[in-house]
Design a protein around this nucleic acid. Structure first.
Lengths: 343, 343
DNA sequence: GCCTCCGATGTTTACGTCAACATTTCTGAC
DNA sequence: GTCAGAAATGTTGACGTAAACATCGGAGGC
């Protein structure tokens, strides 16, 4: 006697056919109602709607994707979700995509190895996505043979323009100039720079712009210190800067490194902003609560994300590239960590 | 004269049929090769593999999902991506899910309103996901009528056990006890608490455990201050605490509020840890670089995420609930912000 | 009153994949 | 040499949806 024990199989949800039968119409009519077509009699529509509610009908997105050749979802390839900027951007990308009616497929790159990156692009190919937003430092990108499925719309955030894809980014150069000029305007002889990692395009653009600003103003260009975006690396650099009494103004390439820098200066008894002025970059939420509150460059991550999604959606729907890079401006936020040099 | 301008339509990629034709086999054989079945002749397999490479074949996941009734993807509903813990957890969830062969569908909840939440669950229904991980404060969850599609596997992170779903979470009570006992062990008469928002289950558990620890030790229980997780709210509370000379030890419910608290204490000339000791919660990366470096409770977000994904995948594949809540332990990290009270 | 046309609705089919079953080919025992 | 059985490969159909086309009924023009 075979006990008919139903195996714990995933019960498929109700389909159009179920709704159609209950409402006494054809599946096609249900489809028309589901898609908001207006060539359906009001009474029929109500009947179908009621039937949908009754059976708990949900359109099957897999079937839709198969039928239409579009999944209404975008992939977001992101490395280093723990980095502050990427997080904010991802949040905004997800919100913007949702608002545009697209789902977000998160494709993490666990580490910076080439194989991990290749794996991510591979997985991307297996996903049904209509387009891709890449949120990785560009120099890393070049290394891997980035082979998108042919004709896949792509937008790159925070990257360089070498790639053959539309690019949206914060105007790093403008921000770095703002930071540097702020310190010079306060009367400092020159500005030291604590840069981000060398393989970051954003970092190198900030660095270049800082240097150019000093040159334009006829100031000496001090040697560059290089960190890796983390507060810990900012601390290490700060220990070295604190030992040099010539240093009166430092522009750190992000707020986190500025935090470590502040700690090192405190530890070495160098007052901020009394002895040394510090400017950060990002304006992360905590920057206002640093000790002292940090003067910094505010990035508009939401704007960057929105523009990226808009560009991608347009490319998906119209098939048009906008190879014109988009640069989103920044804003100087003056707080207590900067002051004129002590005479 | 109608110019036959090809509309810029999405070209569908090559399908099994294309590969099959090129390799001179049936589509089924291609399917077997694609799925790694071993009942295929080695020579045939090679021929098919070569054909796949040549035409750039990618399995169509929509068709697979339709055929198999599974999408091999999970939805992650998250509110407040900007909050530190959620970010770390999401990162780890994505990594763990990828390792388990599941894609991640990010479903953001833009704000805390009920309609936004309902919208997220609605969108979830439209997504083809095999399971869901919910990363929202629980008290918010209760309000909305959380109506999952029938039979949808769900795991809840960082929430309470009232819901009829498996729960994985950091052991908030253990962490709060660790923090409180550390301060008491240093010799403080009692410990003040700067709690998280009232509608957060994590916050209320930390608060309850702090209070219980004080009671167990026979210490007076000071009034509670309530923040909203942000550094700014920590600062506001700090101003009030700094004004009270009785306060010698404070346990802040997260590191960000502790940061604001530190700033307020500095501003009011109260030395840390000379006059006041401070303990945080989370051990965010920056905590070691606060001034002074923050003693805090380390959470293992990666562990929480991994356990959640494992539980969900098991539920998906085996159809079994584990309603036993999982609690991941924490660890006290002693840094410079705590010391014995000044005699 | 007849015919046309339009709007509402139904029927058929294909999207790409893979389980189930059918067929063919090969291996080895007698 | 014959035949059973296993291994390799092919054929059919269904998953849920929606475009394309077919059908039907009624409104309006003459």
């Amino acid at each position: 006697m075979t006990a008919d024990e139903t195996p714990v199989r995933r019960r498929r949800g109700p389909s159009m056919a179920d709704v159609a039968q209950l409402a006494g119409v054809s599946g096609q009519t249900v489809s028309r109602v589901a898609n908001g077509r207006h060539n359906v009699d009001a009474a029929t529509r109500d009947r179908v709607l009621a039937a949908m509610r009754e059976v708990g009908y949900r359109p099957n997105s897999a079937a839709r994707a198969l039928r239409n050749g579009q999944s209404r979802s975008i992939g977001v390839i992101v490395f280093g979700l723990s980095s502050f900027g990427n997080t904010r951007t991802l949040d905004a990308v997800a919100t913007a995509a949702t608002a545009s009616g697209y789902a977000v497929n998160l494709i993490p790159v666990p580490d910076a190895t080439q194989s991990a990156l290749a794996g991510a692009f591979d997985r991307l190919g297996a996903q049904a996505v209509d387009g891709v937003i890449i949120l990785i430092e560009a120099h890393r990108l070049d290394e891997a043979d980035v082979r998108m499925p042919e004709g896949m719309p792509v937008v790159v955030i925070d990257s360089n323009a070498d790639l053959d894809y539309p690019v949206v980014d914060t105007d790093q150069a403008q921000g770095a100039r703002l930071a540097t000029e702020h310190l010079l305007d306060l009367g400092h002889q020159t500005v030291w720079h604590l840069g981000g990692p060398e393989d970051s395009y954003a970092a190198s653009r900030r660095l270049r712009s800082w240097r150019q600003t000093l040159i334009d103003r006829g100031c000496p260009v001090p040697p560059v210190l290089t960190g890796d975006w983390t507060a810990g690396s900012g601390y290490d650099a700060g220990r070295r800067l604190a030992a040099d009494p010539d240093v009166t103004a430092v522009f750190a390439a992000n707020d986190q490194m500025a935090l470590g820098l502040l700690r090192a200066l405190h530890e070495c008894g160098r007052a901020v902003p009394g002895n040394v002025s510090v400017v950060g970059f990002d304006d992360m939420e905590e920057a206002a609560q640093f000790w002292p509150p940090l003067t910094t460059i505010r990035q508009f991550f939401g704007e960057v994300a929105r523009r990226s999604v808009d560009a991608l959606v347009e490319e998906i729907q119209a098939g048009e590239h906008h190879h014109q890079p988009v640069a989103v401006g920044t804003e100087l936020v003056v707080r207590a960590s900067t002051a004129p040099p002590r005479p």
